[in-house]
Design a protein around this nucleic acid. Sequence first.
DNA 1: ACGAAATTGTCCTTCGTTGTCAATTGTGCG
DNA 2: CGCACAATTGACAACGAAGGACAATTTCGT
Lengths: 342, 342
Amino acid sequence: MAHGEKRSTSIDVAKLAQVSPKSVSRVFNDEPHISPALRKKVLRAAKELNYHPNVLAQGLVRRQSYLIGLIYEKPSPSYVVELQRGALERLHGERYRLIVLPVQSVMDRPLEVVSLVRSAALDGVILAPPASDHPDILDGLSDAHIPFARIAPQSWLDVGLSTAMDDVAAAREIAEHVIALGHRTIAIIMGDPAHAASAQRLIGYHQAFDANGLPPLPELVETGDFSFESGYEATKRLLSRKLRPTAILAQNDDMAVGAMSAARELGFDVPADLTVVGFDDSEIARVVWPRLTTIRQPVMEMAKTAADMLLRKLAGEDPGGMVIHAHQLVDRLTAAPPPTSS
Amino acid sequence: MAHGEKRSTSIDVAKLAQVSPKSVSRVFNDEPHISPALRKKVLRAAKELNYHPNVLAQGLVRRQSYLIGLIYEKPSPSYVVELQRGALERLHGERYRLIVLPVQSVMDRPLEVVSLVRSAALDGVILAPPASDHPDILDGLSDAHIPFARIAPQSWLDVGLSTAMDDVAAAREIAEHVIALGHRTIAIIMGDPAHAASAQRLIGYHQAFDANGLPPLPELVETGDFSFESGYEATKRLLSRKLRPTAILAQNDDMAVGAMSAARELGFDVPADLTVVGFDDSEIARVVWPRLTTIRQPVMEMAKTAADMLLRKLAGEDPGGMVIHAHQLVDRLTAAPPPTSS
DNA sequence: ACGAAATTGTCCTTCGTTGTCAATTGTGCG
DNA sequence: CGCACAATTGACAACGAAGGACAATTTCGT
């Protein structure tokens, strides 16, 4: 293994092994009808030269890049991590590699996203919200014949592959849980309006309110953007209202944790004085103290399934259209009965 | 914009624009001596056909893939996020794309990493710890003439490009801070021993102990692996010792937060009963309550600089060998004087 | 209008690998 | 022993774009 070796090609290997280049190709692609002798010769030569097939050349002739893109727009860090974990887990051991493509603003320039994907020659794309719900992007990718798997889409459910969960039901469940504890004055911190899931979850909350004869309280609905800071700010505002909530439903965990920080800073104990629940069950929910009561959204599984469907599709199989993953209420330590006030 | 358009080539564009293929190439590569008229014709035809140069073909002839790899091994989620953010920030607007390559175990099979990089045809690699300190990997990449930038390396500092911080000084500083508050019985939670930084930080802590006439307390040193859980477990053990520490120095934030959870669960208030400080100042440090006192390790900046050096190197410039980034003590809410005991 | 410079076109290679099809070798069996 | 047929290998042209070397054609300054 000399220092400074040059990159070697299949032709070099062929020459050294005294066989045709085509044979090298055949060996490396595990084609049938290869004599063990040939295989051994080629492999030995390849090892000697430290040969690796050139993916670019392979890609050119096969019209494949073996690259999968993951598109997301400034989501909460914990969410991206889960997404990547899921996708990578499925991709592990495969030839495909994951390219991360955070995009500035999906809503403003959707076609840029399509252009990005095309110019990167991706074989397939995993779309996280809100890109997974943008019609122009879906159309653009369809037109370009680029397979895509959508994470948690809310509309156009028949387009492309998708993995989803029932946001409405999940939101209803956690709201029911809070109501069952005795809360009546319940505030809501919405996520980024650009994400269709935000509206869905609100619907779920309201269903629970309805079912229990609680009127919606528009003045206790604040809008955030799924970030810690937005949850923090929203909570500061909420807790200074004359009508003070005894519970806060945050549409994701980061905002819920922001709510906890704000509450603490204002001298409220969680959960004794204020119940806070989140949504997602991302890493952060298990890590804060007290541990956050939330809805487990199987982001990792969804990403994994998305990658799986994409791979199957790329392999020519029919992965079906949509897989629904189950959510689950995770009751930890931040939900308690309201303080027995005045 | 018809549905189901086929992929178009430079030849198609040339035909439509009534120019030579060579002109198309010239326009797309911004070569000099091109009349605005030609440029416009070509661009219009390209747009009409929705043409994107085939990166694979370009890469093949130019011997470049425009792909940069980011290699890391199961680090704390917050760390990866910062890494990616930094690298992506620098890469934004460039032709280069980021491929994420989490690897199982760098220590066990370093050559696999090299092989991985070679077979993916990466133009350059960013190595996070502990891969950034593994001689076999450095050698392998050097042999293959693949440029690499190392994040926070501790040894072989003259090899390749690197961005670093002074771990020893930083650790010393935060230990000094804790000691200055009056603590004398100070526990340490080490990070993953596979990371060279762990040993460095320990040295820093001990320097501070020395300088203040405190003996090292080997029985109060626990070893974790940079994960929340390991910090949690280590703290459970530490707080049940007969010699109970009044402060815990954790070698990263995740473990520090784990320590806070454990302490809380055992009925200790942070910081009233127990001081906990971390290292890194990752997202989580700002998000927990009380906000964590820690050392700001400029991970994002380091990653950004690493990407920058790599790009400069790939552009043929000489980016120098190493850039040191400044750290900073971030005193928030988890460090306080020890309880006035007995 | 004349030489120089700017612009565009032609043509042929190269990049490294695979697909196609033809050529060769080997095998079972009547 | 020889044939039909399968297994094995080789030859050669793609794949899509870029680069070099020139030739052909403007365009411009004076």
